[in-house]
Design a protein around this nucleic acid. Structure first.
Lengths: 67, 67
DNA sequence: CAGAAAAGTGCACTTTATTTCGCTTTCGCT
DNA sequence: AGCGAAAGCGAAATAAAGTGCACTTTTCTG
């Protein structure tokens, strides 16, 4: 699952509009839109702001190998 | 645990130098250094290149609440 | 169906990440 | 002690993220 779809789904689950997410995260509406449509390449700082609002966390872990 | 320390530890575990990681990921040595010292704010694409080399993955998940 | 709200797009602009150079410092090793 | 490899830092140029505005399209909803 891609970032943008996780963000979009989570936002909708919480009943927030893109404008709400922009306001609460302090990011521009424009960047929220581009990220959710998969056209953006957000920075870690940007993604972290979004994640904070949505109750998500960004983590890096050792990749599971398919057996 | 922060990104940069995970990257650094994983790189060292694999016996790679920063130069190796730069070469394999196609990123500049300079940016590898800044990320590992926590001074960078890389994009998802940049982090994904690094993760790919190190056998790591970047994921976004619902945050666990402390009970 | 009609109107409004939400989502998506294009452009010009500002800010910041990334690159590339070179130099200094630190560390492990014989 | 001294060598070389690796890490850290500075500056200038370039690539790319992020912003704000105006607009179109889609999706609610009444």
């Amino acid at each position: 699952m891609e970032f943008y779809s996780i963000i979009k789904e989570r936002r909708q689950l919480l009943g927030l509009t893109q404008q709400d997410l922009a306001d609460y995260s302090g990011l521009s509406l424009r960047i929220i839109k581009s990220i959710e449509t998969g056209k953006g390449n957000p920075s870690v700082a940007t993604l972290t702001k979004i994640a904070g609002v949505l109750g998500l966390e960004l983590i890096m872990k050792v990749k599971e190998m398919i057996k």
